[in-house]
Design a protein around this nucleic acid. Structure first.
Length: 219
DNA sequence: CACCAGGCAAGTA
DNA sequence: TACTTGCATGGT
């Protein structure tokens, strides 16, 4: 019979995957669409992001060139449903500008760059923090970067798998140290953590009695 | 009605 | 270094 992994992180992954199945975030989207979506989704329900993307798509403006040529004000109108529209319009333009300045406006050059440099360039963009940068690296550039967020911290600290008092950097390192460098696994795992957090691991929900991760930390 | 959703930057102490 | 606040729409 099949037995659970000795590796705590893989064990958690297997449980979540068995419970929820494949999440397959950003299936078939182009790297550019992922790039835009990564900014639009900041603190925003995904459904609203899809509306904003659809506005651009329907106008035939969902391309690097179109956004590059577009004013911040015009862009803001298209992405209004995603909320924080004026802030996000600026952030998107900042990101486009960085790719023009450092990669000749070629998204493929950015994707082909080495991980350290591309991550550093992303973090220098105003409006791109660690989580957005890593989401772009993983979901748009397909690099083996593990995306951690507040959900990740909450779920894994509540199951005593990581320290309560940690930070983005060390939390991320724990996952990288305990998981194989697998882009598909990182894609699924992050999405599965979001799923379980939303269903079972809310801020005030100490019991989590039906959580698929119940008891995963013991063996 | 309140709360939250696939955060970040700037300001404060 | 570690908090707090502004940003803003739409679903539940």
């Amino acid at each position: 019979m099949q037995q659970e992994h000795t590796n705590l992180f893989l064990r958690a992954y297997e449980r979540l995957y068995s419970y929820y199945g494949s999440q397959n975030w950003w299936p078939g989207e182009t790297s550019f669409e992922v790039l835009v979506g990564a900014i639009l989704t900041q603190n925003t329900n995904w459904l609203n992001v899809e509306k904003a993307l659809a506005n651009l798509e329907n106008a035939g403006k969902l391309s690097f060139y179109s956004l590059s040529a577009m004013s911040v004000g015009e862009l803001a109108e298209y992405i209004r449903p995603a909320g924080y529209y004026s802030v996000k319009a600026k952030r998107l333009k900042n990101l486009i500008q960085m790719i023009e300045d450092k990669y000749e406006g070629e998204l493929s050059f950015f994707i082909e760059d080495n991980l350290e440099d591309s991550r550093e360039n992303l973090l220098q963009v105003k409006g791109v923090g660690p989580e957005t940068a890593d989401a772009i690296l993983l979901y748009a550039a397909k690099k083996p970067v593990f995306v951690v967020d507040t959900y990740t911290h909450r779920v894994f600290s509540r199951h005593n798998m990581v320290e309560e008092d940690t930070n983005y950097q060390s939390l991320q390192q724990e996952f990288l140290d305990n998981l194989p460098d697998d882009v598909v696994l990182f894609n699924e795992f992050h999405a599965l953590i979001v799923a379980v957090a939303k269903e079972f691991c809310k801020k005030t929900n100490p019991l989590c009695i039906k959580c698929p991760l119940q008891g995963v930390e013991n063996r």
